[in-house]
């Protein structure tokens, strides 16, 4: 697993993808920070964090689009799948690499908090709640992206499909509001990434929300393993 993780992480920075991802991420985060905090003169960072969800929906597909697609296209997956490692280790190694690149992006928000701290005292609990939320939301999205990339050998299809799925996940609470049947609406609400993430931006460490994102991450990584497994049998 470490071998796959290391190769994958390094390859983000031998190709432009890692740089492009981080550059756009920093720009977007900086832009929203300037807009909300500095211009409005507030020390509250939660507007920045709620806007970040859109940024993720656009950027994560770029980060994950080639994870398995490229391996399949170049037949390099043959070398991974015939090596003495389990499918779980392959998937997790790749996930971890994307996650680490993403975490490097998220770290920038800590810088914002420090900038705010220079002027006044930010609500540190709120800041850490937000960062935790962003990390968890990102990890769920990354595992969705990794999963989608295992379905196709075309990177563009992979990126577009991940984007579409993330938009739909984002819209769950909106969908819930137009569904007349009460219990179905409640299912959608409980699966709403937006609602659960917003919980964090208000600084609430709701354990169920934490578990939700962790489970979504685990579930999609598991689906990815199943896809790879299934492909061998087809």
């Amino acid at each position: 697993m470490t071998a796959i993780f290391r190769r994958e992480f390094v390859s983000y920075f031998t190709s432009p993808i890692g740089y492009v991802f981080l550059a756009i991420f920093y720009c977007a985060a900086g832009f929203f920070f300037t807009l909300s905090s500095i211009q409005q003169g507030t020390t509250e960072l939660n507007t920045v964090f709620s806007m970040m969800m859109f940024v993720l929906i656009v950027l994560i597909p770029i980060l994950t689009m080639r994870t398995f697609s490229e391996e399949k296209k170049n037949k390099t997956e043959q070398c991974l799948l015939t090596a003495p490692v389990t499918l779980g280790a392959i998937v997790f190694g790749k996930f971890l690499a994307a996650f680490l690149v993403y975490a490097m992006g998220v770290l920038i928000t800590l810088v914002f908090a420090v900038v705010v701290a220079a002027i006044s005292t930010p609500d540190w609990l709120l800041v850490f709640g937000n960062i935790l939320g962003l990390i968890l939301l990102g990890s769920a999205f990354i595992s969705v992206g990794v999963f989608v990339s295992s379905l196709t050998e075309n990177q563009v299809v992979s990126a577009v499909l991940s984007f579409a799925i993330m938009v739909i996940l984002y819209l769950f609470s909106a969908i819930a509001s137009i569904i007349p049947v009460d219990f179905i609406a409640r299912i959608f609400t409980s699966l709403s990434f937006l609602d659960r993430y917003n919980g964090f931006t208000y600084g609430s460490f709701d354990l169920s929300n934490i578990l939700f994102f962790v489970s979504v991450t685990a579930a999609f990584l598991f689906f990815t393993v199943r896809v790879l497994e299934k492909r061998r049998w087809s």
Partner: peptide, 13 residues
């Protein structure tokens, strides 16, 4: 040790 029909090489390494 397996050498597939198309060698599984990572071109950027």
């Amino acid at each position: 040790g397996y050498l597939p029909e198309q060698p599984p090489l990572y071109m950027d390494m």
